[in-house]
Amino acid sequence: MLRSIRSEALKVVTTRAWWILAIVLFGYIALFAGGMAALFGTISDQADALGPGSSIPPLVYSFATSVGYVFPLLFGALATTTEFRHQTLTPTFLATPRRGEVLGSKVIVGAAWGAIFGVVGIVATVGVGGLILALVGVDPLLDSTDTWALLGRMVLAMALWGVIGVGLGVLVPNQVASIVIVLAFTQFVEPTLRIAAAFWEWSAEVGRFLPGAASDALVGSSFFTSLSAGGGANLLEWWQGGLVLAGYAVVFIVSGALTTWRRDVT
């Protein structure tokens, strides 16, 4: 198993996708967090408008996950679909014929790189966003254990998104289809569903279990939930959010393992 994990990690670092994604993630999140930090910082007198008890730094920091989760998701999906697309499953399965072992290694590597993306996103939000907050006179709260717990949960969320990406890639081996699903779902379908779900009580109950909502619950702070009516009240507990997110990962991986992963490699 260790050999297979090493091989999978080597596959990641010997191609360019991961650091291109990491650079884009950093730039994108730094821009978001920096801009929002400047905006909120200057209107901090009215910050209470964002919801009771919400404070600005966690909100800015959590952009790394609330906006950035698409990156580990995309990374994980690419990591598996690339093997189908370039038919590299042949050498992969020749070297490691026990396919479950290969998939397990991909899960571990997907989680590891998801966590790396989490750290990159945090460097962007805390580095750029925190700096700007400090500059405009808002306490960046970096001496607070709550802040560090938040950052830890963000890394965990990103790791889980990496695994979900791997699962999606196994379930939908067509690379283009997989990418379209990731982008459409994260940028359009889920945001729309979450807004729509908030209208009725029963749908709000269901909406909490959407993957993005579960992820925000796990992190415990998100720009989107703060904006929506009722603030974070609709979210699950952080550990429940984590379990729901992990549940998605397990369902995707297992159903992929039982279908496309078992197929003939021709």
Binding site: S4, L10, K11, T14, T15, R16, T82, P91, A95, T96
Partner: peptide, 25 residues
């Protein structure tokens, strides 16, 4: 084994392709 549809990731170098397999074995 060398199969006809020799399948390589185009973005990976020849040496890295072998390193990936070597690591797994």
């Amino acid at each position: 084994t060398a199969l006809e549809a020799a399948s390589f990731h185009p973005g990976r170098s020849g040496r890295d392709h072998l390193r990936v397999a070597a690591a797994a074995a």
